[in-house]
Design a protein around this nucleic acid. Structure first.
Lengths: 117, 117
DNA sequence: CAAATATATGAACAACTATTCATATATATA
DNA sequence: TATATATATGAATAGTTGTTCATATATTTG
């Protein structure tokens, strides 16, 4: 399967073959990209940031971010589906908290990165 | 600025105020989300993954990923704009390499995360 | 200098996604 | 049991984004 022949390919062929071999497989790439899709949205990032500080219900998060319940609830579904948060129902309220240790690390590295520029 | 009054808010008010105080500021959230937007696309993730292994020209990357030059070049522009890759022109070719140490770490944590499930 | 090659980029299009609005469900309480 | 409240969710919409196509630029080579 060749895409637009470059003369240079002949020269770099070995490097290309070697690089191809060392690449992460398709499934891994797909899953990692899906994970980072979560952190690529400001609303979700803020929700995770808030949950890093305290366990919160939809109403609390909604108030903290200044956004509608519906919007927050939709995003929490995304986070639930990706198993990044867990929900605990108490009475009418549903309290959310982080399910994963990596979340903090990922946010920290992000912050570290942008501060080094 | 209140969004949809919840009775519960009164109860959690202190928690809300405390959480609000500890939140990352808007600009940081914006920049971090932009950073992770890069890693949320499979093509960009593959490009970074390849550049983690070797310095490559557009043609090489195009061949490795099985995608058109144009597509790769567009994505490299995104990576350039975010200062994640650097370009070195040699003759007709432009060789790209990673500009940042965090890239490897971010990919590693992502892989680690998905493997722990 | 002309032709070929490598890369870059603008415009258009299709696919995706975040929010809104309307509504449904579940729990608490009067 | 009826009402109020908290959350969830489907559908529609608007905004965003990745790829393609056409074309431009820059460098090498004949």
């Amino acid at each position: 399967m060749e895409y637009e022949d470059c003369e240079e390919e002949i020269i770099h062929e070995e490097k290309i073959i070697d690089t191809k071999k060392k690449l992460l497989n398709e499934d891994t790439i797909f899953e990692v990209s899906n994970l980072y899709k979560v952190f690529s949205d400001e609303t979700r990032l803020k929700i995770l940031n808030a949950l890093l500080i305290s366990e919160l219900c939809v109403c609390d998060i909604s108030e903290i971010l200044g956004m509608t319940h519906s919007s927050i609830s939709h995003q929490l579904k995304v986070l639930r589906d990706l198993k990044l948060v867990k929900a605990k129902k108490i009475g009418k309220s549903v309290f959310y908290s982080l399910k994963d240790d990596h979340i903090q690390k990922i946010i920290e590295i992000g912050v570290e990165h942008i501060n080094e520029k």
